[in-house]
Amino acid sequence: MKLTDVALICKALGDSNRLEIAQMLSDGEKCGCRILERFSITQPTLSHHMKILVECGLVNDRKEGKWHHYSLNCEALIEFKNYIGSLTCEL
C-alpha cells in the first residue's frame, strides 16, 4: 500500500462520524438509509462522508435502484492494518 493511500485512509478515519460508519460496516453491507438512521445528519452530509470513504478506497459502493449499499473493502482494510502493524516503537 502506498503511503499516499495510507494517508488518505487516516484522513478519512480522522472524522468520528466516518470512523463510526466504518465500524458499522465491519459486520456487513449496509444500505445508506440504515446508516443515516444512526446519525443526526442530513442525507447530503451522509453522502459527503460516504464519498470520502469510497474515494480513499476503504469502502465499496454498490447502487441498487435508488439506494446505495456500502461495505468495507476488505483488501484495503487488510493492507492498511498490515501497514499500521508494521510500525514499531524503539524504547
Rank of each mutant, 00 (worst) to 15 (best):
M1L: 12
M1D: 05
T4S: 09
T4Q: 07
V6F: 11
A7K: 09
A7W: 05
A7C: 06
L8A: 15
L8D: 15
I9P: 06
I9A: 02
K11F: 12
K11H: 12
A12W: 07
L13M: 00
L13C: 04
L13H: 03
L13K: 05
D15N: 10
D15Y: 05
D15Q: 01
R18A: 04
L19P: 03
I21E: 06
A22Y: 01
Q23R: 11
Q23A: 14
M24W: 11
L25K: 07
L25I: 07
S26N: 01
S26R: 05
D27R: 07
D27P: 07
G28H: 02
E29W: 05
K30C: 07
K30N: 08
K30E: 06
C31M: 03
C31T: 09
C31L: 03
R34W: 03
L36Q: 11
E37K: 07
R38F: 11
S40I: 02
P44Y: 05
P44K: 09
P44L: 02
L46W: 00
S47R: 08
S47Y: 04
H48D: 08
H48L: 13
H49E: 00
M50W: 00
K51N: 08
I52Y: 09
L53T: 02
V54W: 10
V54N: 12
C56F: 06
V59A: 12
V59K: 13
N60E: 09
K63R: 13
E64T: 13
K66H: 15
W67K: 15
W67T: 11
W67R: 14
H68Q: 14
H68W: 11
H69A: 00
Y70E: 03
S71M: 00
C74P: 05
C74I: 11
C74H: 14
E75R: 01
E75F: 03
A76E: 05
A76F: 04
L77E: 02
L77G: 01
L77K: 02
I78L: 11
K81N: 10
K81H: 07
K81G: 13
K81P: 00
N82Q: 14
N82M: 11
N82Y: 02
L87R: 10
T88Y: 13
C89S: 14
C89F: 15
